[in-house]
Design a binder for these strands. Structure first.
Length: 786
DNA sequence: GAGCACTGC
């Protein structure tokens, strides 16, 4: 609330401006409550491909009876190199016949855009085709930097980026086996000695919490975020001869930023690499790559390319398209728009079930239906089960399996298993999770409702919305493709062909749907002064960028002239969003001195979805709620998370049972412990605290005074996410004056407090505040003071 | 009284 903001702050606000490039923005405008019209923007989830299924993780030793030296000897005499038992499979991949062409293109060019559909083998084969190329060798060179000459190594390694950790690690394991230097899992091997010398190898990976980079690694699978972090240390990516950007069609914020930095390296002055080019292979599973090709081709910098010993000047971006290995999928649209999608979905399921065979020569004929969310899935499940009970003895039975992210691991796993009962058809009711993240085996019929829930950030309102929106054509194609993985399939679209034609070709990339706060800070920390001119495939609206710059200024990450501050540099070292990083820095301040507590809370929050699972059945409800009583704190959700973490750590006998009794997501809790360890380590390294005492530590409840201090440190990052209780018992936000309701998942739901702070603000059916704490109004002004 | 999907030295 502006009238509660301190006078000092107001005075500063009117005086302070942020400069971006040649633009000047005043803080006054940011803090004004002038209403603005929201522009509606349709958007949808991204898209496809995964050249592997989760089952691929199974570790195998391979190369029976051989050791690393033998494999190395093979390598020298054989062409292609690698473990012989994989030759046949690899040679059968569509990509195999393109290997000479791929090598030829990259000998002559720096950038290749490669379109390869699901199953083409691009993720596993491309790095193996390239690592023995002449340009891919490591070289000792002299580089002039700051007036002095330095001898450094450039090149030698190929990095392949993946949007997800599992993809990076499973691909690395598979390629390592194919290359004949498997990454034997020491942990999983139990007491057995690994068969191979795992300290050496051609293939490695590096993802958060998990790094396996053997000596001699030439092919390294990394997450996009990991490479962005490496860029912080090494802006020229000197370790690498090539970067293979996989799954670019998913268009994560990280891949967009990475593309910008790669474009700068490829087209810019390569003095930092002693003139040695960095090769870039962009890989997409969808053919819609025009904008990507244009992005990497058109460059002003290309004209001023240095001539320091470079033989070839780069030609335009090369392009190669490889067919996938999909079975044909017959697509049916509805002749007319359906009035009730839920009803149409059910009718289509029954029609397929009664009219189509249960099995054929390709295998099982299961059904996968795409829904928008959990609520629809659960409603449909009840109706299908009711219907299934009425089926005659000659009709196959139906087994309904829901599949969405909030389900437990075991429940999700059930959807991947073949049905054990005979004469039964599996019907999987899934959210978008089945479009990209997981592959359900056995599916031959897909039903596509044409919608998906999409999260979109509304910069003008400073909040997010999560609503069902029409999907894109490429998303619809991806959904249909799920029917053709194991045999010819059928896809039933519950919308007309005209509707399909009018859908956007691709989904809105994440950078246009999300708060660009993090992206801007990432750029600033990597030396981008004028963020508006940084090369991006899709540019966020200038207003969104300005909002983010101002927010970063308020957080203290940017100085008045828009340059990054020491605090900003510290903030980017933490694997949390900028506001959380600000809270960590505040908590380390002697004035607050509550860093350990704040780390515990932030670890719980950033571990994924809520650590508290929802309680479904009525009978369990009372029991679980009774068990949760000891965790619950009247100060709100943050102190409740802290108590949960402290009790979890103090629990030494059976943590799994402890979680089960309270319906706490143990997977997220374990992840929270990982994050806690990582953040603690970073804080020690930054001299923000001493090495903390090891676990377990006995539980002692946090005192009300300490709780207040913790909440005050959170306000340092979230002062704008506060609301006051109005006379009509609603909460009105101090920034924007919106009415918000406390989300039912909060321990403060239904309670009236003088003022609240909330870490998340999402519009679904209502304007909801999530992760809520009770605060005093006076604390808000205090937090904004300095 | 309610929850698309991912992710970070």
């Amino acid at each position: 609330m502006e009238n509660r903001m301190s006078k000092k702050r107001k005075a500063e606000a009117s005086a302070n401006v942020v400069k971006i490039g040649n633009k000047t923005i005043s803080l006054e405008g940011y803090l004004s409550k002038k209403p603005r019209k929201e522009t509606p923007a349709p958007a949808v989830k991204e898209n496809p491909d995964a050249d592997l299924t989760p089952d691929d993780t199974a570790p195998t030793l391979g190369l029976d009876g051989k050791n690393l030296e033998d494999a190395a000897a093979d390598l020298a005499v054989r062409k292609p190199p690698g473990a012989p038992e994989f030759f046949q499979t690899r040679q059968g991949l569509p990509l195999w016949s393109y290997q000479d062409e791929i090598r030829r293109i990259l000998r002559q060019n720096d950038v290749l855009v490669l379109v390869g559909e699901t199953g083409s083998g691009k993720s596993t084969q491309v790095p193996q085709f390239l690592y023995q190329e002449g340009w891919c060798q490591r070289r000792r060179v002299k580089i002039e930097e700051g007036g002095r000459t330095e001898e450094v190594s450039v090149g030698g390694v190929i990095a392949i980026t993946q949007p997800r950790r599992v993809a990076a690690t499973t691909l690395a394991h598979r390629v390592a086996r194919e290359a004949g230097t498997p990454l034997v899992s020491v942990e999983k091997g139990g007491g057995d000695k690994p068969k191979y010398d795992t300290s050496k190898g051609l293939v490695g990976y590096s993802v958060r919490f998990d790094h396996r980079v053997p000596r001699g690694t030439r092919i390294k699978f990394v997450t996009e975020g990991m490479l962005l972090q490496e860029l912080l240390r090494d802006p020229h990516l000197r370790q690498y001869s090539a970067i293979v950007v996989d799954e670019i069609h998913e268009r994560s914020v990280d891949v967009d930023l990475l593309s910008g930095f790669l474009k700068q390296i490829v087209t810019g002055d390569k003095a930092g690499r002693a003139g040695i080019p960095l090769k870039v292979v962009i890989m997409s599973a969808t053919a819609n790559v025009e904008s990507i090709k244009t992005f990497f081709s058109d460059s002003e910098a290309q004209k001023t390319r240095p001539v320091s010993g470079q033989q070839t000047s780069p030609s335009p971006v090369q392009f190669l398209q490889i067919e996938g290995r999909q079975f044909p999928v017959e697509i049916t649209h509805t002749p007319k728009p359906v009035p009730d999608i839920q009803e149409a979905l059910l009718k289509t399921i029954f029609k397929i079930h009664t009219g189509e065979p249960l099995q054929d020569k390709y295998g099982r004929n299961d059904i996968l239906a795409f829904f928008t969310g959990q609520e629809d899935i659960e409603a449909a499940q009840r109706l299908i089960e009711e219907y299934a009970a009425t089926l005659g003895p000659k009709v196959p039975k139906i087994k309904v399996l829901p599949l969405f992210g909030q389900l437990s691991m075991e429940a999700q796993h059930e959807a991947f298993q073949p049905i054990k009962a005979s004469f039964t058809r599996k019907v999987v009711l899934a959210t978008n999770i089945a479009e990209t993240s997981v592959t359900v085996p056995g599916v031959r019929y897909v039903i596509d409702c044409g919608k998906a829930k999409v999260k979109k950030y509304r910069p003008r309102l400073g909040m997010e919305s999560l609503l069902a929106k029409p999907i894109s054509q490429s998303s619809a194609i991806q959904r249909a493709g799920r029917a053709g993985r194991e045999g010819p399939g059928k896809c039933f679209r519950l919308y007309t062909e005209e509707t399909y034609d009018e859908l956007p070709k691709t989904d809105l990339p994440e950078i246009l749907r999300t708060d660009v706060l993090g992206a801007i800070l990432t750029m600033k920390a990597r030396g981008i002064e004028d963020v508006l001119s940084f090369p991006l495939m899709d540019r966020p609206e200038v207003e969104s960028v300005e909002k983010a710059l101002l927010h970063l200024h308020i957080l203290g990450a940017l100085a008045d002239d828009g340059s990054i501050t020491d605090m900003g540099r510290k903030m980017v070292l933490f694997p949390v969003t900028a506001p959380y990083a600000r809270v960590l820095l505040a908590a380390a301040d002697p004035k607050y001195d509550c860093l350990l507590e704040v780390i515990d809370i932030i670890s719980c929050i950033t571990a994924g979805d809520d650590i508290f699972l929802q309680i479904k059945s009525e009978e369990l409800k009372e029991e679980v709620e009774a068990n949760r009583k000891e965790l619950s704190r009247r100060e709100g959700d943050l102190l409740t998370y802290l108590t949960a973490m402290q009790l979890y750590v103090a629990e030494t006998s059976d943590r799994a049972q402890w979680c089960k009794a309270r319906k706490i997501n143990i997977r997220n809790m374990k992840q929270a412990l990982n994050i806690r360890k990582q953040i603690r380590g970073l804080c020690v390294k930054q001299k923000m605290m001493e090495q903390p005492a090891p676990d377990p530590r006995p539980f002692a409840p946090t005192s009300p005074d300490k709780a207040a201090t913790i909440l005050k440190s959170f306000l340092k990052g979230f002062a704008l996410k506060t609301a006051m209780l109005a006379p009509d018992s609603s909460y009105v936000t101090s920034h924007g004056k919106h009415v918000v309701a406390i989300h039912p998942s909060s321990v403060l739901h239904g309670q009236k407090k003088e003022a609240i702070m909330f870490l998340e603000h999402v519009y679904t059916q209502k304007n909801y505040a999530k992760k809520v704490s009770a605060i005093q109004a006076a604390w808000i002004a205090e937090a904004l003071e300095g």
